[in-house]
Design a protein around this nucleic acid. Structure first.
Lengths: 226, 226
DNA sequence: GTCATAATTTGATCGAGGTCAACTCGTGAG
DNA sequence: CTCACGAGTTGACCTCGATCAAATTATGAC
């Protein structure tokens, strides 16, 4: 891991991210003031469950996986964060200890925000507090969505749901590129890679074509009914 | 559903709850000011997914279940809230629409807090914002814990984990009473009632005795190893 | 292009847990 | 006391998805 100062490019990435975009400029600048940037290789561990943690992170580029470990060493993904996402915020409110493990899935650049400082700023600036609350809510929702999907849907249905989540509302047919390896998607959906593969081939019958990372949908309706 | 004003008794229950206990008195009073109380019978629906919702709730007595519906009508529990818990807060930050269904599991009394007002107070009072953020974090953690347990543990292991979560740290043997029907516990753990029953009988071999709602643990270690 | 390696798919097998049906038990109404 | 009902348990069966092994297809290094 190498750490650097924030350059103009990173700065733009940071300010364009979902957390910052709605904040007043002054508030953003206050937060960003002494942010540092760290770079990580694929597979690098960013932090481990239970470890002291006094930053929150924003993904400037690359991809980060949040997961828990079972007693037997098996891993369960909690979330995957693409460019622009803020993560690690729960430690800030729960004793400054990581509540999960985080790993770079790819060559990744992170902005590190001092969590004590962010918390202090949130106290002084209602807009920041509000943005944080919205973020926390979104993350809670993501986890609840996952939980409900795990419990209610079969593997092909979860994959269909994921695809539809990436498909704009109006269209009937549509195509997009997976933002990561199938490997990672499998983890995110709580499936073994083999199960994901089989799910895709089950969906082929409902008009889904998979060529490498490119997914094509020919009949949105059929997918919704699945 | 009948609605009433807050009496002295309710007031005490409310102020003793986890959300309020750390707040300064002035802040609590401001929030409570025009709270109303509603009473509900077992099985009453409190709100439904997607419905407009402009209150947050505190359980004064009874029990509330938060769940999502599958396309086929099956239900997946997200959380169960006992007396003293605040819930329904995510609607406040996500367009004032319920993000799940809520049902009384028992005869239940709720305090209803106007969410617009609470949000406004949070803007003016850092302590309230902070308490809200902690609450949101805790709820996010609960969901993530559930998700990880669902993915990493078998049914008997999840039950063991639940029991251990109700068992003080030091003790070797211990006994407690389930705060609700096994039915409800099964839902909370994402199990069919039959599976819960079988899980209990699997744990019998590790020193767990079940008589009605009373659970007895004779060997904490064995349970942890399970 | 050619090879080595990693990613993905396919096949075969197995176990966890859901579902349905039957049975037991405890509890409250009368 | 007796009955009826609902909660909980047990048995039988079956489906989904995990796992292991093997085949196949990218992908990058050279």
């Amino acid at each position: 891991m190498k750490t650097l100062r924030l350059n103009a490019n990173d700065r733009a990435a940071l300010l364009g991210s979902c957390f910052f975009e709605k904040l007043p400029v002054a508030a953003s600048n206050a937060i960003i003031e002494d942010v540092v940037v760290s770079t990580h290789e694929e597979h690098d561990i960013l932090f481990s469950h239970g470890e002291p943690l006094d930053h929150v992170f924003v993904v400037l580029s690359g991809l980060v996986r949040l997961y828990r470990l079972g007693k037997d060493g098996r891993e369960a993904d909690i979330a995957v964060f693409p460019r622009g996402e803020l993560f690690g915020e729960s430690a800030m409110f729960l004793g400054n200890r990581a509540t999960a493990n985080a790993q770079a899935i790819d060559t990744t650049m992170l902005a590190r925000i001092d969590s004590r400082k962010l918390r202090k700023l949130a106290e002084q600036t209602p807009e920041i507090a509000d943005a944080l609350m919205q973020l926390l809510c979104r993350h809670a929702q993501m986890a609840e969505d996952c939980l409900a999907e795990d419990r209610l849907l079969t593997a092909p249905q979860r994959v269909a749901s994921y695809i539809l989540g990436n498909c704009p509302d109006g269209t009937l047919s549509f195509s997009f590129r997976l933002p990561f390896q199938k490997n990672v998607l499998a983890g995110k959906l709580g499936l073994a890679p083999e199960a994901l593969s089989r799910a895709f081939s089950a969906l082929r019958r409902s008009g889904v074509t998979v060529r490498g990372r490119v997914i094509e949908i020919h009949d949105r309706q059929a997918l919704e009914r699945f």
